[in-house]
Amino acid sequence: MKGTGVLIGASSTLVLLAVLGLAAPVIAPDGHESIDLLSRLAPPVFLGGSFEHPLGTDELGRDILARLVYSIRVTIVIALVATMIGAVVGTTVGLLAAAAGGWLDETLMLIVDAQAALPYILLVLLVLSAFGSELQYFVVLLGLYGWERYARLARSQAVSAREQGYALAISAVGASPARLYLRHILPNISSALIVTATLTFPQIVLLESSLSFLGLGVQPPQTSLGNMVAFGRDYLMTAWWIVAAPAVVILITSLAFTLLGETLRDRLDPTLADRS
C-alpha cells in the first residue's frame, strides 16, 4: 500500500525522539543546568571537539546534548498534554452541540466559527500579557489550540452517526443521550478525531517553540527547543551549533508528525485525501 515506507520512517523517528526524551536522565545524569565554565562554547565532536560534549557546549559551558534531550522531553510532554486538552474540550463541545441542538448548538457553532476566523496566537499573546506565562496556564493555552476543529468534526460526525442503524436501535431501547453519545457514537467517530489530533500535535509543537523562542513560553531555568534557539541566537556568528541542534530537532519532529498524520488520514478516510 502507498505510504507504508513513510509510515514506518515517520513512526520510528518519533519513537526515537520519545526514547531520547524518556532517557534524558540517563543520557545526561548531571541534568541540563550543569555548568562547565572551563569548556565554554566548545565545538561538537565532528568539528574537533571532545567526546565529553558530543554536540559541543553553550556560552556557560552547558552540554548541548544534555540540554537537547531535556528540551525534547519538555516539548513532547507539553505538546502531549496540550493535544489531549484540546481533543477533550473540542470533542465535548461538538458532542454537546450535536446532542442539544437548537439555540445551544447555534451558539456553540458561532463561537467555533469565530475561533476559526481569528489567528489563535494573537489571542494567546493577549492572555499571556495579561496573566504572565506560568507553565500550567501556558500548557492550557496551548491545549486550546485547534479545539474548534475537534468540535466541528465531532458535531458533524455525530449528527450523521446518530441516523445509522445501531444508534437508532440504542435510542429505541431507551438509552440516555449521555450513554448514546459517549458509549456508542464516540467510539465510532474516534478515528477521524485521532487523525485530527495527529495533525494538530506538530502544530502545537511549533506554537510552543515559537512562543518560547519569543520569550513568552517556557521560561528558564526550564528548557525547551524554542528557548534553546532563542538563547543560542546571540552566538550565531561564533557558535552556530547551539542553535543548529534544537532547530534540526524541531524540523524533524514537525515533519515526521505531519507525514504520519497525512498518511493516516489518507488511509482511514480516502475521501479526505488531497492527492498530495
Partner: peptide
C-alpha cells in the same frame, strides 16, 4: 511539505546562518 512544516523562525535562523 518541508516548507510547510518548518516554523518561520527556524527558516529565519537558517537563512541568517
Amino acid at each position: 511539505t518541508v516548507g510547510y512544516c518548518v516554523p518561520d523562525f527556524v527558516i529565519g535562523i537558517l537563512l541568517i546562518l
